[in-house]
């Protein structure tokens, strides 16, 4: 497990242990990675963060266009593993959580412990969060900096 923000590590570690997800990723709504568990290559994190942020943004837009209000978590249940993707509100930023889980757990448990992790994160978050506006021209630099920190490169 690697976290850019040390206070994130405890709640994420508990989430991973209790929900028994295989992979977990926390990022800002702009795709800036905050913490990860289970990824072995920086490229995977980069792809997952970009896709996760994109899916949440496009789903939000779809909800707005169709007048459906807001969507909560997005779950894709595959044959051998499932993907759970959910935006959530931190004190002064929007974050996204992504988890990949196998048959050794269930959506219900992932959702339950994800909710508890969000509560813990909100409680332990410092006043200023890494949720600043990410401009398109600095996005890649920011992402690369995050990945270096997360993978020690």
């Amino acid at each position: 497990m690697r976290a850019l923000e040390p206070w994130v590590e405890g709640p994420l570690r508990t989430f991973v242990a209790e929900s028994q997800v295989r992979v977990a990723l926390l990022m800002t709504s702009a795709g800036q990675v905050v913490a990860q568990h289970g990824f072995t290559r920086s490229l995977d994190v980069m792809t997952a963060a970009a896709l996760g942020a994109g899916i949440v943004a496009s789903t939000r837009e779809l909800a707005r266009e169709t007048g459906a209000g807001t969507f909560g978590a997005i779950v894709h249940q595959g044959g051998k593993q499932g993907v759970f993707l959910a935006p959530f509100s931190m004190p002064d930023a929007q974050w996204i959580g992504l988890a990949v889980f196998g048959p050794d757990t269930s959506i219900g448990l992932v959702q339950l412990f994800f909710g508890r992790m969000v509560d813990d994160l909100v409680k332990t978050a410092p006043r200023t969060l890494p949720g600043r506006e990410v401009l398109p021209e600095t996005f890649e630099d920011d992402l690369n900096a995050s990945l270096r920190a997360l993978f020690g490169r």
Binding site: Q77, S106, I107, G108, L109, Q111, L112, G115
Partner: peptide, 20 residues
């Protein structure tokens, strides 16, 4: 899934957790 489909509970009961 362990998700709640329907419930009837006294106030304060954690039905999501019980279901999961």
């Amino acid at each position: 899934d362990g998700l709640v489909v329907a419930e009837s509970a006294l106030e304060g009961q954690a039905t999501e957790a019980a279901a999961a």
